[in-house]
Design a protein around this nucleic acid. Structure first.
Lengths: 304, 304
DNA sequence: CGACAACATGAGAAATACTCATTTAAAGAC
DNA sequence: GTCTTTAAATGAGTATTTCTCATGTTGTCG
């Protein structure tokens, strides 16, 4: 018998393009999905997708089921939201801080969507606070903090959102452009541009340069991504940024990107929340939509 | 996680009015449904229906899920139909005979519905054949026969549709009216009106009178239910009919009904089909909708 | 009150959905 | 062409879920 599980799988498969990645998204193994879909295909007596292509291509039967999924799953989600409200957990506050300078890109659609669906929850990103966000979260001045470096604090839970790769942006004609990856040592000859924050909060240092004991030749800071890009493009330095923050500049061929080290430097972005708010239906919904929109909007990220 | 299974259960529960009957409809035990719904309620943190009422009464949460089910399940069914078509089993013929004089009432809506959804399948109820329907089914002159007395024939499968009770219709002022049930012996004093068919095909004889060795004082036949009702109402005899064939006359208080024996006489109505056509998706769909419409249209019947 | 009907509950059985370890197949690299 | 890498399939075993069975509880009606 067809179940919602199958529809969810197919949607994940379409969005991911391969079984392996789809499996990550729904938090199952590749094998599980392979079996699941095989069962389904046998019962329907019809293949659902062509495996030999990248991304996978759906047969007519597969497309029909995807159509069904698109009709049905939103209805189901709306119903679940209504039920959560009926359960009585409707009041709430969601004030958040963002430690990640380029996160607004995907956070804004999430916030908009959320505001529509949970009008009773007061959602806000209060600007211009100068205190440390994580302690502020603990003392209930904030309700959610987007951060890439979780620090163990009592009562604080870190909910992984997605993993992303730190890439090194270099000028198009730069000597490192086109290399498959860059070694820490190579950066000893470069000017590194960063956001004006402590080095302990930057992955280039903590995960790449510090372990190798290397320091860049020179350091300079910039507030905004676009300024960094201008500096990089004009050959005044290099900078490390999340892959998704770079895609638009890469597409316009404004700069080039190289991986940091052979394996790349991968970090996880977290939503820090208080344990008490973790079960709240609107919080679960916010995290879910946050993940969904980030996967929809950003390229090159992976499930945590 | 919410699944279609839950929605199907809730619909069955609403249609049936009690867990016990709903369980019969979805072919599970009462216990299974009880557990299933309990799980759901716990996860939603909300009761779904009030158990102490008959029929059960749904809470707001339950109603919300029912709404969802009504939106979603038809979509799912349409998709399944499309998939069955894609699987290639689209051609078919469905000529049927009806051995049961009062079946048109529920069969017609079924046929109409089916014609809409399977335009490629030729559906018909050829009239005026004088041959025995079951052998005609075996030799492929027919594809489906509605009958209440299955006879073992090679290659013929009897698919139970529903169970119904045979009731004795008597005039309002008749001496038996108002009794909880009637004994076979009591019929020895009555004129029994039947359809003009062999007695071996009438449950009153096979299940009630013959076992007790009783014969009615007199016998007469009538072609149509309405004629029988007129004879009964005017005190010219009594007649045994399925409970659902009587409801409209009972509601208008045209005649009264009494059960046949303490336990009542229950029969099962079958759809006789050839084994080969049993798996055909349109056949499965026809049987499903036949069951559905009969439960929707007829009162007092039970799942087989 | 006692009998009956509907639902709940706990324990164990059956079905199913998953994981792990391997194999097969295809696509790229050299 | 062979070697490597990546994706998907497969089989066996495990875990989980979902049933059934047997029994207990509660409410209803004569």
């Amino acid at each position: 018998m067809l179940e919602l599980r199958h529809l969810r799988t197919l949607i994940a498969l379409r969005d991911a393009g391969s079984l392996v990645e789809a499996a990550e998204r729904v938090h199952l193994t590749q094998s599980a999905l392979s079996h699941q879909i095989k069962d389904l295909e046998e019962r329907l007596d019809n293949p659902l997708f062509v495996r030999k292509t990248r991304p996978v291509e759906f047969t007519r039967a597969g497309q029909r089921l995807l159509t069904l999924a698109e009709q049905v799953l939103p209805l189901v989600r709306m119903a679940e939201r209504d039920l959560a409200r009926l359960a009585g957990n409707e009041q709430g506050r969601l004030h958040m801080a963002i430690e990640c300078h380029s996160c607004f890109q995907w956070l804004m659609p999430t916030v908009d969507h959320f505001r529509d669906h949970w009008p009773e929850v007061e959602i806000d990103i209060p600007g211009g606070h100068h205190f440390d966000p994580l302690p502020a979260l603990a003392r209930e001045q904030l309700d959610l903090v987007i951060t890439a470096d979780p620090q163990p604090l009592p009562g604080i839970h870190y909910e992984p959102l997605f993993r992303y790769e730190g890439l090194l942006a270099v000028a198009r004609q730069h000597r490192l452009a086109g290399k498959p990856f860059v070694t820490p040592e190579a950066l000893a000859e470069e000017t590194l541009i960063t956001y004006p924050v402590e080095h302990s909060r930057l992955d280039v240092f903590t995960q790449f340069l510090d372990p190798a004991g290397v320091r860049p030749k020179e350091l300079r800071t910039a507030e905004l991504t676009i300024m960094m890009m201008q500096l990089v493009a004009s050959g005044r330095g290099v900078c490390a940024l999340p892959n998704w923050a770079l895609t638009e500049y890469l597409e316009r061929d404004y700069v080039k990107a190289v991986a940091l080290g052979e394996k790349g430097v991968w970090s996880t972005l977290f939503a820090a929340i208080r344990e008490e708010t973790r079960q709240a239906p609107w919080m679960e919904d916010f995290l879910r939509t946050a993940r969904e929109t980030s996967f929809a909007v950003l390229e090159g990220i992976k499930p945590a």
